[in-house]
């Protein structure tokens, strides 16, 4: 997201960049090292109906926040892997919370009952909560589902981005970005890759 990185890409793309292209309403995600914003905001969990915040789940080894939803083909493609990673690393001291910031008025499938159904079908053992104003997603600068933010044990953003490099077929995955980052954070090291991107559904903000 840095200006330098953008200029470099433009330069590579066109040979000479006289001025960077303008953008409409582009807001960036949290920067590396930033703490989780709105960490005390209580959100209703489809796991057990209780109210839970990011601070409530924060783990000794780190904290993983994933913005996701039910309807998006990308979120669906990754949902089994997200659930497996969440369940596995929760046992390794990482606090895990999945957040649905989508407006169910736009996608009824993203409603609470569907979230509860997803918790059951996936055997999810970590909170899957509703960001009922979408303000938590806004504060993170999240824009796509799924989008992961992994904080280290001192609460600093250590990894931001996608799950891996193949949403569709787990057998074809070459780069396990999030799993590698989780492994690093659990042992107190910075992830080798701290920022990735994947094509996904835009978050349907309220």
């Amino acid at each position: 997201m840095s200006f330098a990185a953008f200029t470099l890409v433009t330069t590579l793309a066109v040979g000479s960049a006289s001025s960077p292209a303008s953008a409409s309403a582009a807001t960036g995600p949290l920067s590396a090292g930033a703490p989780a914003p709105l960490a005390s905001t209580k959100m209703k969990s489809a796991l057990d109906g209780k109210l839970v915040s990011i601070a409530d789940v924060a783990g000794k080894a780190g904290t993983l926040v994933i913005f996701t939803c039910n309807h998006c083909p990308f979120a669906r493609g990754w949902e089994r892997r997200i659930a497996d990673l969440g369940n596995a690393y929760a046992k390794k001291g990482v606090g895990v919370i999945l957040i649905n910031a989508n407006d169910p008025a736009k996608y009824p499938e993203d409603g609470f009952a569907e979230m509860q159904a997803r918790v059951k079908s996936l055997g999810l053992q970590v909170p899957y909560v509703v960001d009922e104003t979408s303000n938590v997603a806004r504060a993170f600068g999240a824009s796509v589902t799924p989008e992961a933010f992994l904080f280290d044990k001192s609460g600093k953003l250590a990894y931001h981005g996608t799950i891996d490099d193949n949403h569709k077929d787990p057998a074809q995955v070459g780069k396990r970005y999030l799993k590698d980052a989780l492994e690093a954070v659990v042992v107190g090291k910075p992830p080798a890759v701290a920022e990735t991107k994947g094509i996904g559904c835009g978050i349907k903000f309220r």
């Binding site: 953008a23 991107k197 094509i199 996904g200």
Partner: peptide, 10 residues
């Protein structure tokens, strides 16, 4: 490659 500012959202 298209734009480093793009998050990948459609």
């Amino acid at each position: 490659g298209l734009d480093a500012r793009w998050s990948g959202a459609l």
